[in-house]
Amino acid sequence: MAAITDHDTTNGLDEAFEEAANHPGLTLIPGIELSADVPGNEVHMLGYHIDRQDEDLQEALKEFQAGRVDRGRDMVEKLGELGLPVSWERVQELAQGTVGRPHIAQAMVERGYIEHVAQAFDKYLGRNGLAYSERVKLTPEGAVRLITQAGGVAVLAHPIYTTDYIDMLPGLKAAGLVGMEVHYSTLSRDAIADLARVAKEHDLLPCGGSDYHAMDKPDEALPGQAGPPLEVAERLADLASRR
Rank of each mutant, 00 (worst) to 15 (best):
K78V: 02
H49V: 00
M45Q: 02
G80A: 13
V38F: 03
L79M: 10
P39E: 15
P85K: 01
D54M: 03
T98W: 02
V91N: 08
A95T: 08
V43H: 12
E55C: 01
L26W: 10
V69W: 09
A20L: 06
Q65Y: 13
H44V: 03
L94R: 07
R52I: 05
Q58M: 10
V99M: 13
D56K: 14
I50T: 09
E55M: 07
G31P: 01
H23D: 09
D70T: 09
G100A: 11
E81F: 01
E89K: 15
Q58N: 15
L28H: 06
Q96W: 02
H49R: 10
Q96N: 14
D70G: 08
L46P: 04
P102M: 08
D74V: 00
L26K: 06
I29Q: 06
A95I: 05
D51P: 11
K78S: 02
G100T: 09
V86Q: 03
H44A: 05
G100W: 01
F64S: 11
L46C: 10
E55H: 12
M75F: 07
P24Q: 08
K62M: 06
G100H: 04
R52D: 01
K62H: 10
E77H: 09
V38I: 14
E55L: 10
H49P: 00
P30F: 01
R90N: 04
G25Q: 13
P24A: 09
V86E: 02
R68P: 00
E33A: 07
D70R: 13
S35K: 10
W88L: 06
A60P: 00
H49C: 08
K62Y: 07
R73N: 09
G97P: 04
E89L: 13
V38N: 02
G72P: 04
V91P: 03
P39H: 15
L57R: 11
M45N: 00
E59F: 06
T98A: 13
Q58W: 00
A60E: 09
V76A: 14
A66H: 14
L79Y: 04
E55R: 13
Q96S: 14
G83D: 05
E89I: 05
H23R: 14
E81K: 15
V76F: 08
E59W: 10
F64L: 15
T98E: 12
W88Q: 10
S87C: 02
N41G: 15
